[in-house]
Design a protein around this nucleic acid. Structure first.
Lengths: 243, 243
DNA sequence: TTTTCACTCCCCAGAAATGGTGAGGTGTAA
DNA sequence: TTACACCTCACCATTTCTGGGGAGTGAAAA
């Protein structure tokens, strides 16, 4: 194997490679280099797509990756759910593993080679883009605590660069989404997201319900939504409105 | 002036202060310490709320801050507009200053003491939270290019910590951890958020539409939502579902 | 200057969602 | 064993939403 002769790369070098990366392969290589550098089991970056589809790179086994996708584990994985509500990186131990589904998920993950320890950095981009950068290892709690404490800052930066590159490489993830809503449309969709009925919204905005409908429909059109609920969901997950 | 006797603090020290900060004043102090440390004119962190309301800390003059708020410059400021669509930090020179409104805004900003150079880091948190960390200075282009190149990584990290603290201090952004939804409820709400009608959802889940309604209603009850759209919006912004 | 776009208003009829109530089966946890 | 939460199904009448038209203003951009 050629890899035997590749010397362990210093972090600075890996970071620079990352900043200059020009394709997914370079990112994949970076995950492997990071594993080497830190001497840990896994380094993974993955983009959590709005459709539940995913994308990314990392050192998890193909079998596990396939299984994860096939069984749609995004909807179960406490790491995803937990990070989605957080801003700061989090140790897996601090997540909520209490549900039955989560427990069996965890057992299975370890079976497939994922470490018993993990640390994940949530990352968010424009238009509601969301991704995770995760490091995982098999070891005891104290070793892991020391390790994460020592490298937490680097991990945030690395996560940032991974996501930057992913956004660069994947321009087709946000083109259609770019359509911005007009102020009135934002008002309308926001109020609907707050639970008001059309009548109430029209009243609140002091416009006729007919006018309101025009806004909702044009917003729906811009967002490519099939109905009001869909429009609200899209506006929310793209960060166009905040409730 | 007392500030004469405060020695310039090393970055490491400022970062640690920041990580341990327990109030807005500490953040304010950090912006000032950073100015000192780097020898630049301004360091500003500010949270940009959807409603245009804002919040933050920094070294801009009070007059400028008041004016900015009063005239609702969030809707004009090319820095905000540009960063909102970007993930990576950006130099102000690369933004779109072409509109008339932007030009007069820029002139006015400089008049009020903002530097002619600037570098802003966009930051995003859960629930569509958005904030900016900005450094600004008056100098020529090459000096600024060298300076930003030298410190870009630190700036990303500092921005991260500022935002982490701001999120901590803002309690009303994460209080209501509502009841968890049952798996079927999650499915139902998720599919609704993806734009399916009730009939389609029932079909997809292979249950009767009546049953589906029970899920939707119980989910709505758990989420304290007034209607389906509201329930979807709440589930989304609480991170209970991922669309 | 012309065009484009946001904003406002109006009608109608059919499709979809809602609110209330009820009932039976399963499994887990106290 | 007894709760309790989850999953499944049903009917009623009413409210709300949706899809299809058309039309005029003013401001800003091309």
């Amino acid at each position: 194997m050629v890899s035997v002769i590749t010397a362990m790369q210093p972090l600075e070098h890996i970071m620079e490679e990352l900043e200059q990366a020009e394709g997914l392969e370079a990112l994949q290589a970076a995950t492997e280099a990071l594993c080497d550098h830190y001497g840990i089991d896994h380094v993974v970056y993955h983009w959590v797509d709005s459709v539940g589809g995913q994308y990314g790179c990392g050192t998890y086994s193909d079998v596990w990756r396939a299984r994860y996708l096939e069984l749609n584990y995004v909807r179960v994985d406490p790491v995803i759910l937990g990070c989605f509500q957080r801003f700061h990186p989090v140790d897996w131990k601090r997540l909520d593993w209490s549900s039955k589904a989560a427990k069996s998920f965890q057992a299975e993950a370890i079976e497939y080679g994922v470490g018993n320890q993990g640390y994940s950095v949530p990352i968010r981009g424009p238009n509601g883009q969301f991704a995770l950068f995760t490091v995982s290892h098999s070891c005891n709690d104290t070793w892991w605590a020391d390790w994460t404490e020592a490298h937490r800052r680097d991990l945030i930066l690395i996560a940032h660069y991974f996501n930057q590159k992913a956004l660069e490489f994947e321009p087709d993830r946000k083109p259609e989404q770019s359509q911005a809503l007009s102020p009135r449309e934002v008002d309308s969709i926001t109020l609907l997201a707050m639970g008001y009925s059309r009548a109430q919204v029209a009243d609140t905005l002091s416009i006729s319900e007919h006018t309101l409908r025009v806004y909702i429909e044009s917003a729906r059109f811009k967002l490519g939504a099939m109905n009001t609920t869909h429009a609200v969901a899209r506006a929310l997950s793209r960060g166009l409105i905040v409730v």
